[in-house]
Structure formats: structure tokens, C-alpha cells
């Protein structure tokens, strides 16, 4: 029934010093579709690949606006992301109400990190099954943070989470030195190219399955969905997966666990 006797709850260490429930939560992120974030000196961008459970169903929302200067992209259990984003909205609102100040990005990120950490140390709770990329702008400029269910948060110049995100990460690693000086539009195009690299073989970016969000210094968080994405896809040009077309593609991230490889879309409850 259990993989081992040390994964019954999130408060027990294995003899190797691991907390399995937390590691399973990190696996849940890899089941969700990919999300990519990147920052320049002036802007922070989120792009994400949306999934529909079935042909007749709608696509699951991947990007959530928190405030006019702040938003996030999720990979993993969408309901858990809703709980976290509602909490972030509360924090954001109380900062504006009490101090008349948009909440600094690092503070709201640390607030959810603390919430997530409590779950890894409290009997009877489970870790959040979702990873987040949080993009926002404050007085210290544009920021991109990655949140993990372990309570770990790190700031990045470019980051990718979710299924096949290693390919997107590889793209970001090859190009991140360009990012600081890029214009708003160029940054989005790089984000979409990174996301394209994470596509499955016969898939492509479409206005239906792609979300783009941009926030910048003196520019409010703007989410592009549906038809609005078309203009961005036109800027990218080739929106199809390059898998099987180019010479030798990067091998997939060494599958830690049975989940990373490929879960059938229809069976999935993660986004």
C-alpha cells in the first residue's frame, strides 16, 4: 500500500533524512503542465501551457493575477494554488489598506513559504501539491520567484516548472545573459520560445493553450489569454514542437519517480 514505512505523514524523517510526503508533493508539480518565467531590468514575464482534461472541456487557468503589480503561474494541483493565491490577495490587500503600499514581492512570497513550511512540520496536514512562479514589480524592480511545497522559495532570472520543464530551463540557461537588456516584447518572445521547447512531440502553441502575462516598472500586471495571445504567437513565428525535427534533442530530465515521464492528459488532475 505504501512505498515505504516513512511516507505515512509529513512529519517523519526517513533514516536517510528525507521527508517523502514533501518529495511526493514536488512530484505533483512535474505532473502539471509547464510554466516559464523570466525577468529583464524593467519587466517580469510569465508564460504557461494550459491543459484541457478532454476535447469538450475548457482549459484550466494557469496564471492568476494577485494585484496590479503581482501575479503567478502555477503547475500542479490548481485548487491548492487557489488557496495560496487567495491568501496572497489578502496579504496584498491588507498592505494597501494599512500602509497604502503595494506589498513588496519578497514579502508575500515569504508569507506563503511560511504557510507551506508549517504543513511539512505539522501532523495531520499535507504539503501543498503545487509549484508557483511569482512575477511582480516593487520599489526594488521586477522580480521572479519560484515557490515549492517544501516551503522553499528562490529568486530567479529565469525559471521553468511543470512537465518537461527541463527543456525550457535549458533554453533559459542558454539565453539568460541576454535578458536584462531586452525590451518587453523581446522578453515575452524568449519566454514563449522556452515554453515551446517544453512541448510534446506533435503539439504546438496555440491561442487556446497558451497564457502570457507581463508586468513592468510603471506597468500593471496584464494577462493575455485566448485571442489576445495570437499577436504574441505571431512574433514567435514557429510555434510547433521542435522534437524529432532537430538533430539530437536534449535528453529528458532523468526521471526521478514514475511520474516525470509522461502522464496521459485525460487521467490528470494536475495543471
Amino acid at each position: 500500500m505504501f512505498r515505504n514505512s516513512y511516507d505515512n505523514d509529513s512529519v517523519t524523517f526517513s533514516p536517510q533524512g528525507r521527508i517523502f510526503q514533501v518529495e511526493y508533493a514536488l512530484e505533483a508539480i512535474k505532473q502539471g503542465s509547464a510554466a516559464v518565467g523570466l525577468v529583464s531590468n524593467t519587466h517580469a514575464v510569465l508564460v504557461a501551457l494550459k491543459r484541457n482534461a478532454e476535447e469538450l472541456g475548457s482549459y484550466q487557468k494557469k496564471v492568476i493575477k494577485i494585484d496590479s503589480h503581482l501575479g503567478l503561474a502555477l503547475a500542479g494541483l490548481a485548487p491548492d494554488a487557489r488557496v495560496l493565491s487567495n491568501f496572497m490577495r489578502q496579504q496584498s490587500m491588507s498592505s494597501r489598506l494599512i500602509y497604502a503600499r503595494p506589498i513588496p514581492v519578497a514579502r508575500v512570497v515569504n508569507a506563503i513559504a511560511d504557510k507551506a513550511q508549517v504543513n511539512t512540520q505539522t501532523y495531520g496536514r499535507r504539503p501543498y501539491g503545487v509549484g508557483l512562479l511569482i512575477a511582480g514589480v516593487d520599489e526594488t524592480g521586477p522580480h521572479l520567484w519560484e515557490f515549492q511545497p517544501s516551503g522553499m522559495v528562490l529568486e530567479y532570472k529565469g525559471a521553468a516548472i511543470g512537465a518537461r520543464s527541463q527543456s525550457a530551463r535549458t533554453y533559459l540557461e542558454r539565453n539568460f545573459e541576454l535578458f536584462p537588456g531586452l525590451s518587453r516584447d523581446e522578453l515575452v518572445v524568449h519566454g514563449l520560445r522556452a515554453l515551446r521547447d517544453s512541448l510534446a512531440q506533435d503539439k504546438s502553441l496555440t491561442s487556446a493553450n497558451t497564457s502570457v502575462a507581463v508586468v513592468g516598472i510603471g506597468e500593471e500586471f496584464k494577462l493575455y489569454d485566448g485571442d489576445e495571445v495570437t499577436m504574441w504567437l505571431e512574433k514567435v513565428g514557429d510555434v510547433g514542437s521542435s522534437r524529432g525535427r532537430t538533430e539530437i534533442e536534449q535528453p529528458e530530465a532523468s526521471g526521478s519517480g514514475p511520474t516525470a515521464a509522461a502522464a496521459p492528459d485525460t487521467m490528470d488532475t494536475t495543471d
Binding site: I98, Y99, E139
Partner: peptide
Amino acid sequence: YQNDGHALRAPHIYSY
């Protein structure tokens, strides 16, 4: 204690 480069200025103190 936040030590993150942000500081409360007059409008924030006033609002509080």
C-alpha cells in the same frame, strides 16, 4: 527585521 531593501516612508506611516 525584514531586511529586504524596503522601508516605510511618510505616506505609509501616515496611512498606518
